[in-house]
């Protein structure tokens, strides 16, 4: 019988994968197995066993100290073996570099950033964005298959009535060929954009870092967070992360794009917002095409005015 494996180096994501795995288990009758690697592997495996997996495998060892995609792929390939398997990997950046390498070892297909999974007639159907986020593609593959699921796509699994078994395994593995020589934490604090109800988002039109303050004031007034487009984070380093297909995908009730022109990749990351507002001085900016409401104007005048108008509305 085929099995469904789940793996993420982030325990909260692993718990989300367990929920995804349980849904598929219900549809297929296959067994659900988790892998935990490295420090606290046993502790993490115990927790996954309490949350619905049939079997939780733990492998510890100094070789896992640094996340090395090659070493981790080797370990997982050994665990999974040659049986037909569906492997769900948490779609963090590390997970997404691991999954294709693992899939290649297993001579398997791979679908990254999967947003929906189903099973029919011995085939797995996996939906994901296509053509730069313009379209949704349904990919189909037989087993074995490796799939990455973005973090927070599923809620964490709940405690199960019955605890699964826990198995400790030791593996002989060569050490990493890539050596980590320095790790620098990104300086700016990470806002919880994926959970925010309101996001005020800064684009290239915001000229100086101190100008973010007025966006922050507006966001606070609206009970939301401040985010940004890719150039503001990646080129200017004002934020640790950006909103977009290659960064965080968001789904607030209200998304206010301030001075964001609306590159395709950005739009794909905000598509699920309930209401999109665009503020831009260029009436031709593509962001207006996907906006519910837009103001064509100078953000340096519009944002203070908007703040006043919101204050007034909230008071009355």
């Amino acid at each position: 019988m085929p099995s469904i494996w789940v793996y993420s180096e982030v325990q909260s994501v692993a718990l989300e994968l367990v929920r995804a795995g349980l849904q598929l288990k219900q549809a297929t009758g296959w067994s659900l197995v988790s892998a935990s690697l490295g420090a606290d592997a046993l502790k993490r495996a115990e927790e996954l066993a309490e949350h619905g997996v049939d079997k939780a495998v733990a492998v510890s060892g100094a070789v896992f100290e640094q996340f090395d995609a090659e070493v981790y792929a080797k370990a997982l390939a050994k665990l999974v073996g040659s049986e037909p398997t569906l492997v769900l990997v948490g779609g963090t950046k590390r997970g997404k570099e691991l999954a294709p390498r693992l899939a290649t070892k297993l001579d398997a297909g791979c679908v990254t950033d999967c947003i929906e999974l189903s099973y029919k007639d011995d085939m797995i159907y996996a939906k994901r964005s296509a053509y730069g986020g313009v379209a949704i593609a349904t990919m189909v593959s037989p087993l074995p298959l490796v799939v990455t699921i973005p973090p927070r796509k599923f809620e964490a699994a709940e405690k199960a009535a019955e605890k699964g078994s826990v198995e400790q395994v030791s593996l002989e593995l060569p050490g990493p060929r890539v050596k980590v020589v320095e790790v620098r934490k990104k300086e700016v604090a990470r806002a919880k954009l994926d959970e925010a109800r309101v996001i005020v988002s800064a684009g290239r039109g915001v000229k100086a870092k101190q100008d973010l303050e007025m966006l922050r004031e507006l966001a606070e007034l609206l009970g939301g967070e401040v985010g940004c487009s890719r150039p503001v984070a990646a080129d200017r380093g004002w934020f640790p992360q950006w909103i977009g297909l290659s960064g965080v995908k968001v789904k607030p009730d209200l998304y206010i794009a301030v001075g964001i022109s609306g590159a395709l990749q950005h739009i794909a990351g905000i598509r699920d917002s309930k209401i999109i507002v665009a503020i831009n001085k260029d009436p031709e900016a593509p962001i207006f095409k996907v906006a519910d409401y837009g103001i064509v104007g100078d953000l340096y005048k519009v944002i203070p005015a908007l703040k006043n108008a919101v204050e007034k509305a909230v008071r009355s």
Binding site: I136, A137, M139, P142, P283, F288, D292
Partner: peptide, 18 residues
């Protein structure tokens, strides 16, 4: 191994009040 079973572009239903 992986084939495309279907592709579609969901309609963007935005109000577009500018």
């Amino acid at each position: 191994k992986v084939k495309v079973a279907d592709v579609y572009a969901p309609e963007v239903k935005r109000k577009g009040v500018i």
